[in-house]
């Protein structure tokens, strides 16, 4: 059958102008784009990379962007300003990963005395410029879509770009990790092994990676819609977990997401 992306959002011939930016993050999520080895060449037929520091040294032309991927949380005043600039030139802004979507592992500092932390961690705290809290992108600018995960899933990234090119809704399902786990025929690690698994309250997208390897999900995709976190926490305790361990379970890469935060403070 023939090739092409007819009916695409970009119109005939015109390429989608892509920008990839980072705030406070490890770069792992944007590298997932470069990991799309089989699809990269095909993608460049549809996509023009305007700004992507990990991939090109060509200067950003500063013009409008059709698709913007933002990695990382807002951790400094400079990042907040940079984010505003990026939003202003973006048509469709997507946050990628746990940091951009939920504040990231660096949000563990939130709610604590940041000055005290600086003194403990850094030899020269005076050189460190930081906000008191690490916050998700959506706290600062409107976000059109979010890809979850630490890091994001390559398949979901391609699905998002493919859907944008075709002008359709991305098939990125806000369902539990259990749905993917069961579709792929895994045996439930919680029921069969007593592993504490966050899968039932966690947004799908990883393909149930951890349970596939016999361990419980630790929630790096963050809470799914309507996550029944307290009910799961209660089950953990009924199975013998102490309250402090339970709290820490929900305090990881997406611990600042409201549903998980609530459970880690309960």
């Amino acid at each position: 059958m023939g090739a092409g992306s007819e009916g695409s959002a970009s119109g005939a011939g015109a390429k989608v102008r892509l920008g990839v930016f980072k705030l406070a993050s490890c770069d792992g999520c944007q590298l997932q784009l470069l990991s799309c080895e089989d699809e990269l060449l095909a993608l460049t037929e549809h996509v023009e990379i305007v700004s992507f520091a990990e991939a090109t040294s060509r200067p950003d032309d500063g013009g409008p962007l059709d698709l913007t991927l933002v990695e990382g949380s807002v951790s400094t005043e400079a990042q907040r300003e940079h984010l505003q600039e990026v939003r202003a030139r973006s048509r469709f802004l997507v946050t990628i990963g746990a940091c951009a979507t939920a504040g990231g592992i660096q949000a563990l500092r939130n709610g604590r005395d940041v000055g005290e932390l600086l003194r403990v961690v850094y030899a020269q705290p005076a050189y460190v410029d930081t906000l008191a809290e690490s916050t998700p992108v959506a706290d600062h600018v409107p976000v059109d879509f979010s890809l979850r995960g630490c890091p994001i899933d390559k398949g979901q990234l391609l699905e998002l770009i493919g859907a944008l090119l075709a002008g359709r809704k991305p098939a990125i399902r806000d369902e539990s990790v259990c749905m993917e786990c069961k579709r792929s025929g895994q045996v439930c690690v919680m029921v069969a092994k007593g592993e504490a698994c966050l899968g039932p309250v966690t947004h799908a997208g990883c393909g149930a990676l951890c349970p596939t390897f016999g361990r419980g999900c630790y929630g790096c995709f963050g809470p799914k819609e309507g996550a029944q976190v307290a009910a799961l926490g209660a089950r953990f305790e009924a199975e013998g977990m102490d309250a402090e361990t339970r709290r820490r379970r929900f305090k990881l890469f997406t611990g600042w997401a409201p549903a998980f935060r609530e459970e880690s403070e309960r």
Binding site: S5, D38, E39, L41, A42, L43, L158, E159, I161, G162, L165, A166, R168, A171, E175, S176, C178, M179, K182, R183, C188, G199, P200, V201, G226, Q228, A231, L232
Partner: peptide, 25 residues
């Protein structure tokens, strides 16, 4: 938990959905 485990292991549950993906490569 509204996690869907019961319906997934149920041998009669039949609810399904469809997706219309396009292969990029």
């Amino acid at each position: 938990l509204a996690c869907g485990n019961c319906t997934s292991v149920c041998p009669t549950c039949f609810c399904s959905t469809t997706e219309s993906p396009v292969a990029i490569s």
